[in-house]
Amino acid sequence: METHLEKSIREVMNQPQVTGAMCVDSKGLCLISKGTADPAASGYLSEISRCANHVASTNEDSPVTAIEFGKTQILIKRGDNVTTVIYKDKTK
């Protein structure tokens, strides 16, 4: 299972502008993190995504939440059991 997760995260890390990636389980615990993604923030990021789900979600899909900083953008997408977080460097 971890091998599959590692492979997927590596693919994400190879995309342009991506500096970090993380997967978080339904309890807010970090499953895997690479690059600039901070495992200590996993709980807060999953909770932000959960709140965004309450604001705007359809039966088919959950929203992508974006947190914008000066140079960095954090994208959060909540799945059924796993929340995916991607850190991007906007200056690259």
Binding site: V24, K27, A40
Partner: peptide
Amino acid sequence: CNTGILLTLRN
């Protein structure tokens, strides 16, 4: 309750 957030309480 979000277990990940509980873990930040240590700090």
